[in-house]
Design a protein around this nucleic acid. Structure first.
Lengths: 339, 339
DNA sequence: CGGCGAACTTACAGCGCTGTAAAAATGAGT
DNA sequence: ACTCATTTTTACAGCGCTGTAAGTTCGCCG
């Protein structure tokens, strides 16, 4: 039973290939009797359209790539999920590309040595600079995600990190915290993400009339929970004594939780903790995690809106959009002052 | 600058299209001078191969689908990562398909209404029965992952769940635990995964000379950590008093941890806990989680071996393979008897 | 210097489908 | 029955690339 082609169906139904194609696509101007005849032929032969032929003929694949650092980071896995869902609703499939946060792979993603695999790319870079992104070949439409500073020519969707971080500080201050630490600024240079959250952290402190104490900004690695734990542990052992820790992401918060409890500090009684991203686990942990939650559905929707417009030929300036976020308050940093 | 085609390069270099193709593919029998000439033309025009044409001509896409329940479940995200890595090493890209654990989507995945998108499928079903899988159209090669009972005709890679569960029980017993609970068997009917782990649990108890006490098998939902927490909480409140809980996965263990500590039970002092899958977070939690770890790299390797053989035309009986696993001992269920 | 095998290059014929534009069929109106 | 406007169907020409098999050219031996 070799592969059945459109033309085989056409032959059996006694119509032209194009008519079969029209039926397959639900084209309206097909007489009911013809449609039935063709449909019967399709069923009888077990025909299914071959996407390779279709892709070549249409110049589209109805696939988009989602390129980001690492699927093992829960935030990205969850992001991929919502985007896949939204893409699927629009008839697109998702191809994953993990950059491993390496600049070489990020470059490779933008340069796309091979054309015609996907119709567009959603790209969350970690290290590529704005300049470099601006210079990429515009063969395939791209929409940027995340905190990278996007060039004017490229679309970009993100949340307002600065406002969100300030809001977290406000929440902590309102619950009576005075010595709010930040975990953490990477060395030698903080990532763009940390940078923005740090700015918001400082703005938040100022807005609350709290002193900005550089010694409360932990430096070190936050590559994963263990690294964050070690970074905070070192700071604590060196004498830092915060009553709250604003963590740059939920994984860091997890590490912080461990570093604190290993030192006999209770969360939230002695120290409040906030995370960022509100990964699924944040609500299940003990204590559950207060965390900044980006509006993932809106993010996915807008990012795809922009990308599909580009795919449809829009070629104007980059649109830079901000989607909503909220602070989900849970046990690790409750609203009421610590008891 | 419209798209540059192979033939444009050929024209500029003064050779036939096929020669350009040969150069692009690094075919050896190309004279050095010709190769240079062609390469220069490629560089000058900025040519990049169009995969749509290639795919149609070769009848391949060098993409494989990975179909499983849900990307938001850390185990699957991590599985996708290792498989993507291994696939990439073999020149394949990964397309993700989430079934949401719904039987309709699982059916759709197997029936593949559209041909030619991927060269093969790695499929971890949740609900599809062996019979149904056996009857699927064999248009596209499939390798099954996970615990589903695979039909004889289909390749399948998994770990030995029964042995692993028994091993966990052995570990707990060796550390002095006597009342080992199982969390949990889904109602109305346990999933295939839980079923196998339950069998191993029972075998383990028998092997250790411990009584098999049905009241220690918690029933309820383990859809996520919160559900598992509720299931265990209900059992505890009903009077169950285990000194260890073997959880069917790490998420359930996370829920168990919460249910126990909310009731003032210490882990591992009062109750030991083990998880399953050894997700990344298992090692970062506090206490860190003793967990069963499948050899993910080997799993990915073998699954792809089998799939690529099928893609290359192998058409024999299904191969059923078992890959290694290990018990990673951490704080939640240490080797030494509880202190 | 003719002859030969190996090294290199090419012509050809699609892969399976769709967009375009034009042809054929239909139906309403007169 | 014959227009004319619509609806329905079709012919055609690729989309961009590769496998096959059949040339060419080359170096080298006798």
């Amino acid at each position: 039973m070799p592969n059945v082609r459109l033309s085989d169906v056409a032959k059996l139904a006694g119509v032209s290939p194009k008519t079969v194609s029209n039926v397959v696509h639900g084209y309206v101007h097909v007489r009911e009797s013809t449609r039935t005849k063709v449909q019967n032929a399709i069923d009888e032969l077990g025909y299914r359209p071959n996407m390779r032929g279709r892709n070549l003929a249409t110049g589209r694949t109805r696939m988009i790539a989602l390129a980001f650092p690492d699927l093992r980071i829960p935030y990205f896995a969850e992001l991929a999920h919502v985007i896949a869902e939204e893409a699927s609703a629009r008839g697109y499939r998702l191809l994953l590309e993990e950059s491993g946060s390496t600049i070489e792979v990020e470059r490779a993603i933008l340069s796309a040595e091979e054309a015609g695999i996907v119709d567009g790319v959603l790209f969350q870079p970690s290290y590529l600079t704005s300049t470099e992104i601006a210079q990429h070949r515009r063969d395939v439409p791209v929409v940027l995600l995340g905190e990278s500073i996007a060039p004017l020519s490229v679309d970009h969707v993100r949340i307002d990190n600065i406002a969100a971080a300030a809001q977290v500080v406000g929440h902590l201050a309102a619950s009576g915290r005075r010595r709010i630490a930040f975990l953490c600024a990477e060395v030698p240079a903080p990532s763009e993400t940390s940078k923005q959250r740090l700015i918001g952290y400082q703005q938040g402190l100022e807005a609350c009339g709290l002193p900005v104490d550089p010694s409360l900004v932990v430096t070190g690695s936050v590559a994963d929970a263990d690294a964050a734990c070690a970074s905070l542990a070192a700071a604590l052992d060196a004498g830092m004594a915060p009553d709250a820790v604003l963590c740059r992401d939920d994984l860091a918060a997890l590490g912080a939780l461990r570093a604190l409890s290993e030192r006999g500090l209770r969360v939230p009684a002695d120290v409040a903790i906030t995370g960022w991203d509100d990964i699924t686990l944040a609500s299940s942990m003990h204590p559950s995690l207060t965390s900044v939650r980006a509006d993932g559905a809106q993010l996915a929707r807008r990012a795809l809106d922009l990308l599909l417009e580009r795919i449809d030929g829009y070629d104007g300036l980059g649109r830079h959009e901000i989607v909503g976020h909220s602070l989900v308050v849970r046990e690790s940093a409750p609203a009421a002052p610590a008891g």
